[in-house]
């Protein structure tokens, strides 16, 4: 139970490392949005799963608590991509042009 917690939390942190690096290095709004939306949701869900096992290994896990954490996981799974979609839509409407190789945002 404890090793499962270690595993999930470490993998979640690695994904979040990828997300933050992607957010910083990508040249354009759309590519940044791609990195942020995807990696952020996945790492949050993984770390939350790790939290369930972490609490489980401490022995005071009653099923209501696990259910609540699962509820948060489901909400993040549904809510975060929707928010990313709304922001992408706003970026599109406000006139963000996709980056291309030749010129910057030609």
């Amino acid at each position: 139970m404890e090793y499962a917690a270690f595993f999930f939390i470490v993998v979640g942190l690695i994904f979040f490392l990828g997300t933050s690096i992607g957010l910083l290095r990508f040249p354009d709004f759309y590519t940044r949005m791609h990195a942020a939306g995807k990696g952020d949701t996945l790492s949050t869900v993984l770390i939350l799963a790790g939290c369930i096992f972490a609490v489980g290994s401490q022995g005071d896990l009653n099923w209501i608590l696990a259910l609540k954490i699962l509820l948060i996981i489901n909400f993040v799974f549904i809510g975060c991509p929707t928010a990313t979609h709304a922001m992408m839509d706003a970026g599109e409407r406000a006139g963000a042009k996709p980056w291309n190789k030749k010129g910057e945002n030609k």
């Binding site: 997300t19 957010l23 709004f29 949005m33 942020a36 949050t44 975060c80 990313t84 706003a90 970026g91």
Partner: peptide, 15 residues
């Protein structure tokens, strides 16, 4: 742009 900031704030919020 403002929307880049919005994206980053959303990431910080979920974290």
């Amino acid at each position: 742009t403002v929307i880049d900031r919005l994206v980053a704030v959303n990431v910080i919020g979920t974290k």
